[in-house]
Design a protein around this nucleic acid. Sequence first.
DNA 1: ATGGTCGGCAACCGA
Length: 242
Amino acid sequence: MRLTISTWNINSVRLRIDLVAKFVKAVRPDILCLQETKCPDDRFPLKRLRRLGYEHAALNGQRGYHGVAVLSRLPFDHVSIEGFGGKSDSRHVAVVIGERAGMRDPLTVHNIYVPAGGDAPDVNILVGDLNVAPLEHDVWSHRQLIDVVSHTPIECDRLNAVQRAGQWIDIMRMLVPEPTKLYTWWSYRSADWAAVNKGRRLDHIWVAPALGERVASMAVSKQTRGWPQPSDHVPVSATLEV
DNA sequence: ATGGTCGGCAACCGA
């Protein structure tokens, strides 16, 4: 079974629902993980997503800020939500795709918006906007961003430590190793973002060790940054043989 | 060295 998972910090799902539609028609992910939906659950555009083929939704939204959602063509066995740092911010939602979807082995997908403070056992995939670009070539200038939040040594060291502790495989860097530059975010404050290309790799897809050899492909949908009224983040997608 | 731009929601906060 081929499974495509996409992650995208959409920066308001209601404002950019047409861009979501355009993206899913092109990439056709089975599972779409969104961050910064900025949308209470009772106002989430579920009908539109259902028409696009996503009948299943796991929402953790709030008014005004943050918010994550998993949209899926496949049913969930289980949905869970964790809080981080003792706050009620909507920054995490996890789903299990298993028996009900006809999966041989259940797959847990964690959709996260912020650094995860630690690793959790029995998880398979971790995706989302972690807001850290941990490697030298995850930013346009390692030297100029060394004091800028998202690329400071303490952030990079700790994110790399979480990755090592959980033996997570960073599939973007598995398939596109350093020193190739790899970005998923370009600031709104740069007028000519493509030409200037001062990007950062803030969005990630990590898989558990056993899934490393199941990864068939990975893609960064950079073109969405050039669409009208874009998110400042672009989608990252991975296809797994599960 | 500094300011530059967004979105939500109604004066700034968060990014």
